[in-house]
Structure formats: structure tokens, C-alpha cells
Design a protein around this nucleic acid. Structure first.
Lengths: 210, 210
DNA sequence: TGTAGTTTGACATTTTTTTCACATAATTTT
DNA sequence: AAAATTATGTGAAAAAAATGTCAAACTACA
């Protein structure tokens, strides 16, 4: 049972903590204090302690935090201890790039297949997968217990695809189409808008220039 | 001359406003009130007005906002009226996907070339571009007045590439490598961490499940 | 075992962000 | 042309988030 009452300002920082802690662990660091971590991550030590204490606190006075333990605990909070299967819908450039991304499994995600509506790409290879036709989706999602749909189709088709996969039972959508998708309460949507990130960069460049 | 004193909580919302306004404009909507926009975007009308008023206010009492005008003004604030050239460094899956992305030019970005350190991919075609070798970068950035470097190389190489392009004179880095890149004051960095977005989705799914 | 030094977690304070509420001004209707 | 409606921009209030502080608790080392 997980606490639903934690502000998203806090939970949005967790993945970044997780990334830094994974790196520290990988480089053999055993313990770290909020002060050291704050210097690496460019946030205040106070915020780090406050964030962690939201989940009960994982540190020890006079010692700091055990990197391995902290990493595991944050992983659990993020739900990375649960293996989740996902499908990619849309075998265009973004869909292909995501299909070839090797980092999913490290974080508990298992790519199960890639789908497209265009007959001419069905059967073509993307990484180690063969592109499947859309009508297979319904069956596959139910049969293989697919939890997440990655939507990488054109804007105009995205909401229809979302409605479809929600109906078939996915609990999460990772959306790369240029719209904010809507979904029923049973399904969580995470919209990724690369263009917005680029515009933000443009803004920051403009400000600096002036 | 642009106001540097506006909080990033506000400026981070501008790209999303811009996206919605572009869509409205494209579908022929001429005017919109903060109330209508707030319903579409699922934010409060008050926030919209407050955000816009940071830049002087673009609306008219009793009427609302002129979509075309508002879109143009926000575009200017974001610096989208200035055409900026960019290069992609790293011709892997992400680099290729970005190179094939058609939306850059619509927002004032002009892809100038794609580069890779691996000799075996030099010269191969990516979209309408031919992959160039890294040593060409220095010359090309200066000659073609490249402003932005998109970094899509492996984690361990990313900081070196960043240092390099900063030295050659780029003013912005759009980073897809799994590290937070550091750069001198002359260069703005926008880190895109797709895995963090996916972890955030995982968290939200977990919370819902419990 | 005792003591000096370190570091957390909690709480108080400050700062930032969001929301509310309304005076003002334009539009729209009658 | 007047009245009714609409809707902005702003200053003030409320809420949320970040930061500072410190007692308590542990570590480390002699």
C-alpha cells in the first residue's frame, strides 16, 4: 500500500535521485550524506532530507544514507521492483528508436512488441522485433498482461489509439504524440513533449542573449 | 531586450500555451477567453491571466485574447521568431529519430547536419542528411553559425562532446544522454531524460494500483 | 568507554507559486 | 444609446514548496 498523499513536486524528483544513486552504486560508493548528494545534484541538502523523510526516512544520524539500500527503497517507491510489460504503437522513427533502447529492462520494463497501422511496414524488423498489425493488439494485451502502451503515432491518430488500449486494459500510457491525451481513471497518462523541451531551451537561449 | 526576472514556473508553461494556441489557430479559432483556454488545458483561468500579465498582457476586457496575436507574441517570447541552426551529434537510434523529425523548421529550428564518432557510419544516410565525422564539427559550427548542439551520444562520451561544442561556440545544448551535463555560462543546457519520465509513469501506476 | 564530530529528521520560517476577488473597460444585446 | 454581460489585469490572500535550524542519535576514534 502506497501513500497517495505526497505532492508531485516531491515525487517528480524521485527518478532523478534514483538515477544518481544508481550511478553511485555502480561506481562502488557505499554511503553518502545528504550534503554530498546535494553537491552532486545541485539541490539543497535540506530538500533531499525532507524528500526522503516523506517516505519514512532511510538514513542514520552520524552516518548518512546507505547507497544500495536507499536506491532499492526509492526503486520500490517508484514501482521499479514490479516487472511491467509494454508495447510500442507506431513503428515510425520515434517508435523504432524506443524499441531499440536497451535501458528498459534495467528499470523493470519489458518490451513485448511493436505495432503499426500501416500494412507496408508490418513484418519488417525493428531491433529484435517484427512489426505486428494493429488488430493483434487486443488479443496480445490481454494474453500477455501488457500494462503500458507507448504511443508514437501521428497526432491525429493518438487519441483513438489511446481509447483503444485503455479499453483493452492497459494501466499506463507513455505518450509521444503532440497532443495531451485523455484517458479514464483506470489509466495514467504521461505525456512527453519533446518540442516543448526544445522551446524551453530556445527561451533560455533568448533570455541569455538579450 | 527580454525580461530575465520571470520565474521558471511561468516560463516552463509557455511552450504548452504555444502548442495549444498553434492548434487553435490552425483550426481557425480567432478569439479565446482565459476561461475557455483553461478548460481545454486543464489549468485555472487565473493562472493563464497571471502568466500572460507577466509579459504585459495581451488581452482585451470583454473580448478575450486574439489567438493569432497571442500565439505570435508567445512565439516571440520563446525566441521562435529567430531562426536557429542546430547539429545532431550521435547517429544512433535517437539521433536518427531526431534527424527525421519534421517539426523543427515549423518552430524556427534548422537542422544543419548530423555527426558521429564511429567511422563505420560516416557517410551513411539519415533522412536527407549524410553522417559527417566529428572533426568536421569545429569548422562547421563556426562557418555555419550553429547555435544549438543536440547531444545523442552514449553517457560516457556526452560531457566531452558538450565541452567541445561549447568551446566551438554553441549557445545551447539539448541533451539526450543519461547524465546532467555541465556547461559554461555562455551555454544553456536542457537535459531530456526519457527514463525519468517513464519512471514517473511507473510511480503513478503504482500509486493507483495500491 | 568516553568524547568529539557528524548527520539525520522534524519543525519553524521564509520564499515562491497559485488562487481569489474585484475594479475597470470593452463587447454585446436590447 | 443604455443596460447587461463578458472578461481582463492586478493586488491581496491562501496554499504550497523550499530552506534554515537544531535537538537527538549515531559514528568514529582514542
Amino acid at each position: 500500500m502506497k501513500d497517495k498523499g505526497i505532492s508531485s513536486a516531491v515525487t517528480k524528483r524521485l527518478p532523478r535521485y534514483y538515477r544518481y544513486l544508481s550511478d553511485l552504486k555502480a561506481s562502488g560508493v557505499e554511503r553518502i550524506s545528504s550534503k554530498e548528494l546535494s553537491e552532486k545534484m545541485k539541490v539543497t541538502a535540506s530538500q533531499i532530507r525532507q524528500d526522503f523523510s516523506n517516505f519514512g526516512g532511510f538514513g542514520q544520524q552520524g552516518y548518512g544514507y546507505n547507497v544500495d539500500n536507499l536506491c532499492t527503497e526509492i526503486g520500490k517507491i517508484l514501482g521499479l521492483d514490479t516487472k511491467r510489460k509494454l508495447v510500442i504503437i507506431g513503428a515510425g522513427h520515434i517508435g523504432q528508436a524506443l524499441a531499440n533502447y536497451q535501458g528498459f529492462s534495467k528499470r523493470g520494463f519489458i518490451l513485448s512488441g511493436i505495432y503499426d497501422a500501416d500494412d507496408s511496414v508490418i513484418g519488417s524488423r525493428v531491433g529484435e522485433y517484427s512489426v505486428k498489425p494493429m488488430p493483434s493488439l487486443k488479443e496480445d494485451i490481454k494474453k500477455d498482461d501488457i500494462k503500458i502502451a507507448v504511443i508514437a503515432v501521428p497526432k491525429h491518430a493518438a487519441q483513438d489509439v489511446a481509447n483503444m488500449v485503455c479499453e483493452y486494459g492497459v494501466t499506463g500510457i507513455w505518450n509521444f504524440a503532440l497532443v495531451d491525451l485523455k484517458a479514464p481513471d483506470s489509466c495514467v497518462v504521461e505525456n512527453v513533449h519533446l518540442v516543448e523541451s526544445l522551446m524551453n531551451l530556445a527561451y533560455n537561449i533568448s533570455v541569455k542573449e538579450s
